[in-house]
Design a protein around this nucleic acid. Sequence first.
DNA 1: AATAACTCCAACCGCGTCTCT
DNA 2: AAGAGACGCGGTTGGAGTTAT
Length: 264
Amino acid sequence: MSWEVMAAEQLAWGVMEEGWRKGPWTAEEDRLLIEYVKLHGEGRWNSVARLAGLKRNGKSCRLRWVNYLRPDLKRGQITPHEEKVILELHARWGNRWSTIARSLPGRTDNEIKNYWRTHFKKKAKVSSDNSEKSKARLLRRQQFQQQQLLQQQQQQQQQTQVFDMRRLMSLLDENENRVPTLPQMKQDASAAATPIFPNTIDDHHQVFLYSVFNNSAALPEATNHDQDINWDGLWNMDEFSGNIYYSNSANRATLRTSAATPYY
DNA sequence: AATAACTCCAACCGCGTCTCT
DNA sequence: AAGAGACGCGGTTGGAGTTAT
């Protein structure tokens, strides 16, 4: 092979390995492959190089035909209906892309696989992260329950004020949609300047509510994720006390539903 | 305007299964 | 029955294009 030919092949960046070309296909190679299939039909891919004059191995030819040149391929974006089918079939079959592709005429396993990876895999990861979060939440809830138990015992011993959960629930009902942001809550509750729940809740209950929302007896430093923390607390509250959450706010129930909706 | 980050997708690779001799 | 080659599948890579900062 002359150096000119070698240089030309480098420029076309078709890599030659053991005599086989690799990398992107040229229009001429496509034409030769289409001609070959017209004459000999699909299959016998290892004969393509010899019969069609292509410097491609059989595997590469088959892949190019199946994923790109086949005339029955459907071009264009995956439709919402196709996406639905992919989701349903993936839930049933897992990563059996060729099986899924059989239910989507004109789509290749490679195309579906790529679509899944780019559109759903990341969301699945987020979902798994959420599952980690819910484990941590469970742990926090258990700690919180222990803490409450301890508190109650101490309070009974000292015969001091007893927290009445029913009272708190009704207070929450009365103050529907008034869930404050954390900095507001922290500032107001600790300073006891302006009541957060102006209707009825006294300073003592404000601090307690803050701790319920945040599963913490102490007031933490302000954070940039105030809303997250507050709603996190609400999820826990729901799990912890039964139906506080549902009885509390239709809006929050809607939010909860949307947050709990599984996605891929 | 530059560039970093992200998305898309064609193509490759390794391996398991099938088919033929 | 066994070995070799062909085929098919799922995972991965890397370049091009697009979007965000």
